[in-house]
């Protein structure tokens, strides 16, 4: 019988954290920070930005820098697209979506009910958008590393998860939107993402998610 939290590593998918930290964030050990983020982000309905991701993986000889864009609309719409050095991405529109490699026309559709990854992302969205403090705190130990700018460090509570992801560090701008996310893996790999040209509550054409 399974009575404790599961050890499914999908839960620790980087994307879920990266994408939705800008919307809301919680910190158990800092009620002020938590409240401040909640107030700042409560009015956010859409988010558009570019990102630059630096991935340092032991399997690759050199760190790889990739660039792309991200679009988000509450409650559950997301576009995550890498445009350099290769092209790939995915679109999530409520309960369904699609992925592509190289060519956006070459789509692989999915439903969140059938796709582990999509389901995980959807779950993460729900948790962050609904500001599910209980869920977040059950998954991560959250510490405020710095007040100005606000920097939160999230450490997975589950030891098996920690054996994959050792730390997630998020730095927030004054408007409550994430400026950067750093992910450190237990094996020494790390990923650093900087969000740029961030637009809050800008109209996003629905076609972007279709």
């Amino acid at each position: 019988m399974k009575t404790k939290s599961a050890r499914n590593p999908y839960r620790y998918l980087l994307l879920g954290i990266l994408l939705f930290a800008p919307v809301t964030c919680a910190a158990q050990d800092s009620a002020d920070a938590l409240t401040r983020l909640q107030i700042l982000t409560s009015s956010i309905t859409t988010l558009c930005c570019n990102f630059t991701q630096r991935t340092n993986i032991l399997l690759l000889a050199e760190p790889v820098v990739s660039k792309g864009k991200m679009l988000f609309q509450i409650p559950n719409k997301l576009v995550w697209e890498i445009m350099e050095p290769m092209q790939e991405g995915f679109v999530l529109n409520e309960d369904s979506g699609y992925r592509w490699d190289e060519n956006r026309k070459n789509r692989r559709s999915f439903k969140t009910s059938d796709d582990q990854l999509a389901k995980l992302i959807s779950t993460q969205i729900r948790a962050w958008v609904k500001f599910d403090q209980k869920w977040l705190q059950s998954k991560y130990s959250i510490h405020v590393e710095q007040d100005h700018p606000l920097c939160l460090a999230l450490v997975p509570r589950n030891s098996e998860a920690r054996s994959t992801v050792s730390l997630i560090r998020i730095v927030f701008a004054n408007n409550g939107v994430a400026m950067s996310v750093e992910l450190q893996e237990a094996n020494g790999n790390n990923t650093f993402i900087i969000f740029e040209n961030v637009h809050v509550n800008k109209h996003i054409d629905n076609q972007e998610f279709e």
Binding site: L13, L14, L59, L60, M86, L117, T164, N189
Partner: peptide, 17 residues
């Protein structure tokens, strides 16, 4: 390589290795 740099890279590293 695409997998490693993509969103699922964190999980496919060991498989790739």
């Amino acid at each position: 390589k695409r997998d490693l740099l993509g969103p699922t890279g964190i999980f496919t590293q060991k498989l790739t290795a």
